[in-house]
């Protein structure tokens, strides 16, 4: 083997390996971005960041029936032995012209029981505004057992100038809620 002349077979082997490694690099670059949806899935399973992601329409429809008088079977599903304290917390990041407050500050509900929490958003400016509420729940795992059937946070809300709107969030707590969760906080940040 003379100086620097790398044999053809070695050259081929090198090229093959370089290609594989470049592919691995590309895959890992993609993986970096795949971490974004993976993170959401991960949070959904573990309640990592206390955000409630589930919003599927099937559930919503099923729950809309729940608002109607409960059937016996459904009533059986309420765990009256426990009552959970829920605190509502609001944060407005939408500027000084938007006031955001909970009407029902604290609720006590049984797991399985359908409940409503009402919020008030006031726009004191002369312009109509679009706002979006971002939910966050603490402790994070509790979010896994909170099922919202309707929420103003599902989409942007339009508020006319100088108007006060009331919004409702309908939800129930899963009866599987762990025994050690006695209290939870629902926070909405308005942007």
């Amino acid at each position: 083997m003379s100086q620097r002349s790398v044999s053809a077979t070695q050259q081929q082997a090198n090229t093959r390996l370089v290609k594989r490694l470049l592919l691995a690099t590309a895959i890992m670059f993609g993986f970096g971005f795949a971490l974004v949806p993976l993170y959401d899935v991960f949070c959904d399973i573990t309640g990592l960041n206390g955000r409630v992601y589930q919003k599927d329409t099937q559930q919503t429809q099923a729950a809309q029936n729940l608002v109607a008088p409960l059937t016996e079977a459904e009533q059986d599903n309420i765990d009256v032995t426990r009552s959970i304290k829920l605190e509502m917390m609001t944060i407005s990041q939408a500027g000084g012209a938007i006031l955001f407050e909970p009407i029902d500050k604290t609720l006590r509900i049984h797991p399985g029981q359908m409940a409503e929490a009402r919020f008030r958003i006031t726009n004191v400016s002369k312009d109509a505004k679009y706002v979006q509420a971002i939910p966050s729940i603490s402790p994070g795992q509790a979010g896994l057992y909170l099922h919202k059937t309707a929420c103003f946070c599902f989409e942007q809300q339009h508020i006319e100038a100088n108007q006060q709107n009331e919004f409702v969030m309908q939800f129930y707590l899963d009866t599987d809620l762990p025994e050690d969760i006695l209290q939870m906080t629902l926070a909405y940040t308005l942007y």
């Binding site: 691995a24 690099t25 590309a26 890992m28 670059f29 993986f31 970096g32 971005f33 974004v36």
Partner: peptide, 24 residues
């Protein structure tokens, strides 16, 4: 090779969040 591309992804997301209106 496993992690430098992930860093590249992270800084890219910072770039698009700052200048191109994404919300990662």
């Amino acid at each position: 090779i496993a992690v430098m591309p992930v860093l590249a992804g992270a800084v890219t997301m910072v770039l698009t969040d700052k200048y191109f209106g994404t919300s990662f």
